[in-house]
Design a protein around this nucleic acid. Structure first.
Lengths: 224, 224, 224, 224
DNA sequence: CATGAATGAGAATTCATTCAT
DNA sequence: GATGAATGAATTCTCATTCAT
């Protein structure tokens, strides 16, 4: 697992004395969630076997059931846990920003990319889209907790930009769509066709590429 | 099945003598592909049962196996058949266009949306993304036959626009990414969260919304 | 099919005017039985598909059912038809023999071998042994029509040899067993391990080998 | 299961702590192999259902798959396990023999009969012959591990007999064929027609009958 | 008579889940 | 808490058999 796990500081942890077995015990759920995230992202929900998750977490078949009702609940827990970290950090960063709307947009998308787009969380986002119709309530949760807040943040920045005359008067919803589309496309891409050998170049879908798209959008393609 | 099936005019059909039973034979594969497309799009590959496809096509369990080796081959056939129609029509339309690059882009994306984005084909596109890592060769086929050509078309239009001074000199690849992102996002959206009751408004992801995004991209957000 | 089919002169044939279509029609069942014999011998009962038999007989899937109730009946018919020819010819030859018991035994076993042991009928014999417990009545038929008569014939020859002082007084049943064992073993062998590439030499199981075994049995191994 | 199972002392067993559940684990594979041997011998490979094997072993459908990849591997395991015991005991007995070639032959065939011919192993031998063409590699294994060694043993005894003047100079291969044919025929017989009610008397195919055949072969039928 | 599309019972195999240890 | 043997519902795929043409 490349980038820091979002689970080890989750609600499952505790700050008690951290000695050997006790610590082990408290980390179990986090380790299982972590392994589950990896496997769900890699193979999808149906194709991921509980036993594989258990083995990847270093436990045996029955253990995940001590912490999670069933496979579906485990999946939901993965999504929830992941988003807790994600949304929290998004909010903290947004709150601390200042400067022009343009600067804010660049900063926010940069953070978003670095925090999520380029990590396993992007895979989770793609997975949620793939499984949304199979898990309606989970999708509703994801929508409410991740998508709507993100969009609200973007919306207020665009409105701020228009208010201060930085952006011309425009269709705010459309602008937000246009601003979010490249990062969403990139996240999905990197976990679908982009993962295939030799298929990289439908756009690079890396950070530089994303920033280039954003610049184009801000300035327009049309010659003045 | 709401919008016109791409299968009924496929290689499987024939317009010959149309007498009851015999007629069935020629239509069967198309009917099965059609039912399969619906169900795969709705539930994904793993969650779709062969027997459900059969029932949806009005036949029994064994019948799909008369025409398709197994579930995976049926899935591949769905993708291939669908794309034949799609890519062909894309090319025909592109060939017939004239006018400014801007007009071309609008026309092409409009066609794309009406042809694919708003139909079950969008669901297939989303499905391919969801299943890409599970079906590498199929993903390669899809990439080669659908994605790469589409992108090539967009690229030449942008280059044309730059050449004739309509667009300012720019990073063509990034521009193409930015142009394609909204329609891709919309297609995925409409078959994931967008399909949930009461979740419409993360952007409308309809035709008007798409055109609005395109306009913004062409003109920029930034005030002059 | 190498050696002459036993079916074309079967009860299914008729001696009527033999012109084109009419003839075709009358040969159908024989052609199906012939194909079935080949395939049953090659693959066994369960692994042989009705459609393969039909195809091998140059007809389509439904046709065998016009002549045979079902797969089991077809199998039984194969066995019965085959044995009609076999037992008949055995009897004719036995009736015509004269000379010493030893000469009779050699002649009879030679005929047996040439008529059955070295042809597809040996495969059928092996198949009957393999399937005996699955088809009790058929096995009973085979036993009654093929095995018992063959054995009776051998028994009377041995008794004849003892009576005329050619053989010493002995356990006739054991002698018959010992005389029949090599040819039975050879028939089974040639359609099991003997059919494997590079496995020939557990005894050659050909005509010369069979005669050598017979000679040994008649003369004994022991030095005088 | 009448005669002692070859499995209960196999590598799968262990004599360790014997407490309920845990004990089961070690016995399971042996119980399944045992049940499988019975059923395969009785019905043949194709006609034997995995679920029946499971039930016969006192477990449910899925359990055999915990120990054997699939039906074919289970079949192979049955053959291999059975032969381990068989070939080992054959070798031990052969090594311990002394005396004349005639005595050796009688002793060896007696052992062979008692060890294999009259037990379920004879059924396995018949099964291997029935399925040889369906499982070429398994047949090759059986040939190499069972048939070839047995034949080699017989061959060296006959050669020994000729060398010491006990047997007259003869075609050794033919002699071995003739010596082995009765026991092979008996093994096959007892698991095909011989298993049918009221069909016993094509030779008794029991121990006494076998020894009688052997005596005849050694002494010859012909009057001196 | 012959065809071959369609049927549907049946068998192999998988895997989420349970529970005695 | 943890284990992992066992379960059995679920699913894919096969193929003997039927019957409208």
């Amino acid at each position: 697992m490349a980038l820091g796990s979002p689970f080890n500081e989750s609600e499952f942890s505790n700050a008690m004395i951290d000695t050997g077995w006790q610590r082990k015990k408290d980390e179990r759920p986090g380790e299982i969630l972590d392994a589950a995230l990896d496997l769900f992202v890699e193979k999808g929900f149906r194709a991921t076997k509980m036993e594989d998750i258990a083995r990847a977490a270093g436990v045996t078949k029955g253990t995940p059931y001590l912490y999670f009702e069933n496979k579906e609940e485990l999946f939901k827990a993965v999504v929830r846990e992941t988003q807790v970290a994600h949304v929290t950090s998004m909010r903290e960063r947004a709150a601390g920003h200042s400067g022009s709307a343009t600067e804010l947009l660049f900063a926010l998308l940069e953070d978003w990319w670095k925090e999520s787009g380029s990590t396993r969380l992007a895979g989770l986002c793609k997975l949620m889209m793939a499984e949304a119709t199979n898990f309606p309530e989970l999708a509703a949760f994801y929508y409410a907790e991740v998508i709507a807040p993100s969009r609200a943040m973007m919306t207020s920045i665009v409105e701020f930009g228009v208010a201060r005359g930085e952006f011309r008067p425009l269709d705010v919803a459309a602008a937000v769509d246009a601003l979010m589309a490249p990062i969403i496309t990139s996240m999905v891409w990197n976990h679908s066709f982009g993962a295939m050998p030799g298929v990289a170049p439908v756009g690079r879908h890396d950070y530089a590429s994303l920033m280039a798209s954003l610049s184009l959008l801000l300035n327009g393609l049309t010659a003045r």
